[in-house]
Design a protein around this nucleic acid. Structure first.
Length: 271
DNA sequence: AAATCTCCCTGTAGGC
DNA sequence: TGCCTACAGGGAGATT
């Protein structure tokens, strides 16, 4: 399931193939995603060229001369570069065909993803304007957490996954970061000290950077734009390991639910 | 304002 | 083997 490192991996993977390339046409096989795909997308993109490929939170931003194509991968989405002769398969909802003979192909079995066409300023778009800082930027630190969490009673794990606080910390990395920082996920966010939040913020940066370096985390079906899996899966210490021994102290990892999300932690290492 | 709930969707896993 | 059900999960929007 694509989290920030997977989106970043995708971003870096597709850029060299589509930058400065002109769109021949767009094939829309399924419009019904999280939000309907704009009906006039083929018309909008035809003959326009890619100016820049970037990312904000988990949104991929493909800038054209006439606007920005904003793509979210939801939890089962992927974007791959394929040859135009490659037949589409089930759940391949969109094809962006470029003049260089390559196709940017969007697949999303669960249809939790989305595709938007934005013409106005990005920072005024309703889906982007309220987002918190990028976790890997210098705008984010332990004090971001500390300042925003005072008086908040929500569990620290729920709090750090809130995109208005910091973006891109999904369930997998939230579990992993709290383990590495030694913080129990169930603590009230408002009661965690600045020092502990500084540790947590630095661990989040560390984990996300590591995951990006190895191409993200592959669970079930995530593949990079080249079809290769990510290798961070092998570094997961707690996610998906409830009931198994802690890698550090061997005690049995606990699994609970916080905000409808699977939460795994070590009762001994995390306090 | 903050916390909680609901919903979108389908592949997979577990039970029988 | 095959059918059936429960479940996972990002995140916006509604509700409490």
């Amino acid at each position: 399931m694509p989290e920030l490192p997977e989106v970043e991996t995708t971003c870096r993977g597709i850029e060299p193939h589509i930058l400065k390339q002109k769109v021949l046409d767009v094939i829309v096989r399924e419009r019904k995603l999280r939000w309907p795909v704009p009906a006039n997308l083929p018309k909008l993109l035809k003959n326009d060229s890619v100016v820049e490929v970037s990312r904000r939170a988990k949104y991929l931003l493909i800038k054209f001369t006439g606007g920005v194509l904003m793509i979210h991968l939801g939890m089962s989405g992927s974007l791959r570069i394929v040859k135009n002769s490659e037949p589409s398969e089930k759940h391949d909802h969109l094809d962006f065909r470029f003049q260089n003979g390559l196709v940017l192909r969007y697949r999303d079995p669960r249809k939790f993803g989305s595709v938007h066409w934005i013409t106005g300023p990005l920072d005024e778009h309703p889906l982007l304007c309220r987002l918190g800082p990028e976790p890997l930027s210098s705008d984010f630190s332990g004090s971001t957490f500390h300042v925003l969490s005072r008086k908040r009673k929500a569990a620290v794990k729920t709090f750090i996954m809130d995109g208005h606080v910091v973006v891109g910390v999904g369930n997998i990395y939230a579990n992993e970061a709290l383990f590495r920082a030694g913080i129990r996920p169930t603590l009230a966010a408002g009661k965690v000290s600045l020092a502990r939040y500084e540790k947590l913020a630095s661990v989040i940066k560390e984990i996300l950077a590591e995951a990006i370096k190895v191409g993200g985390t592959t669970l079930r079906d995530f593949l990079g734009s080249d079809g290769e899996p990510g290798y961070f899966t092998q570094s997961l210490a707690v996610y998906g390991r409830g009931g198994e021994p802690c890698m550090v102290c061997k005690s049995v990892l606990k699994e609970v639910r916080l905000g409808q999300r699977a939460t795994v932690y070590c009762n001994k290492c995390q306090r």
